[in-house]
């Protein structure tokens, strides 16, 4: 097992002769999010699943607050996978914040990333009046961090951040609950800050990959207007509004979005 495979719990499955799809999970969860979509994709595509460092079954010892304080750190995880597995002509399917992370990756490797499928994306969650409404005030997002402190708890690790210095990484290995969304509180907060306090609107016009934006008709996190904004900003993009409620189209409406993804990749070859 190579280091990256171990670090990011990389799983490669499906049709090894087919084109490559990297499925990038969103904030708070892990690659299990894709379990509903995988069966419909695995006959035609080589599927690359992984967990960002800090999420799921990744190596917590590789987590560093500095590296993962910004989305560039998460993008580096994907870049490392691209290089390690020598992937070409790649499509990245990114849920929520991973749509932005995919955009960062595509700017670093424009030659490798052909398509980006953005599922419920938002390049910036906070309001920037008068021109942009991310949907949230900074106070809302601060409160979210507080809520996470009360929820995203591998209870056993609650006091782990107390253990500083050389032993931090060992402390982080501590037992996490079985839930796939459970994660270390320090990791979760770092990812949450990187996700909800970042603003990547400025990179959208720089994207050259063919991009499909899938947005829910009703999504408390990323409204239709955010999808429209992204569509305007990204030159090679298509926007599709799915008649659905919620922020997890890939879990609730996978039967609707898989054909859209397949058609998009085929038609924009």
């Amino acid at each position: 097992m190579n280091d990256i495979q171990f670090r990011n719990n990389v799983k490669i499955l499906g049709n090894y002769q087919g084109p490559t799809l990297i499925l990038a999970h969103g904030f708070g969860c892990d690659q299990n999010m894709w379990r509903f979509m995988v069966p419909a994709l695995q006959d035609s595509y080589k599927l690359v699943l992984f967990d960002y460092v800090g999420s799921g079954q990744s190596q917590l010892t590789d987590f560093s607050i500095e590296k993962y304080a910004s989305l560039e750190g998460y993008a580096q995880d994907i870049c490392d996978i691209l290089v390690e597995y020598d992937l070409h002509d790649v499509t990245i399917v990114g849920h929520s914040v991973s749509a932005t992370i995919a955009a960062i990756v595509s700017l670093r490797h424009p030659d490798l990333i052909k398509h980006i499928i953005m599922v419920c994306p938002s390049p910036c969650f906070f309001n920037d009046p008068p021109t942009y409404g991310g949907g949230f005030e900074r106070g809302d997002l601060e409160e979210l961090l507080g809520l996470m402190d009360k929820n995203y708890i591998g209870w056993a690790n609650y006091l782990a951040p107390l253990v500083m210095g050389n032993t931090t990484s060992e402390a982080l290995i501590g037992e996490l609950s079985g839930s796939f969304c459970s994660t270390d509180p320090l990791v979760a907060k770092t990812f949450a800050k990187a996700t909800f306090f970042s603003d990547y609107r400025d990179i959208l016009p720089l994207l050259s990959a063919q991009t499909l934006i899938l947005q829910s008709r009703s999504d408390n996190l990323a409204g239709v207007h955010i999808g429209s904004y992204m569509h305007e900003q990204i030159s090679n993009s298509q926007l599709h509004i799915v008649e659905a409620q919620g922020h997890c189209l890939h879990m609730t409406h996978y039967a609707d979005i898989v054909p859209l993804i397949l058609d998009f990749i085929e038609l924009t070859e």
Binding site: G28, M33, G135, L141, L144, L147, C181, N220, H247, M251
Partner: peptide
Amino acid sequence: TKASSIFIETYIYPLLLAE
């Protein structure tokens, strides 16, 4: 609260859908 709405969308529902 809006923060709770985000929390439901990013944590509670994905977890419910999985488990």
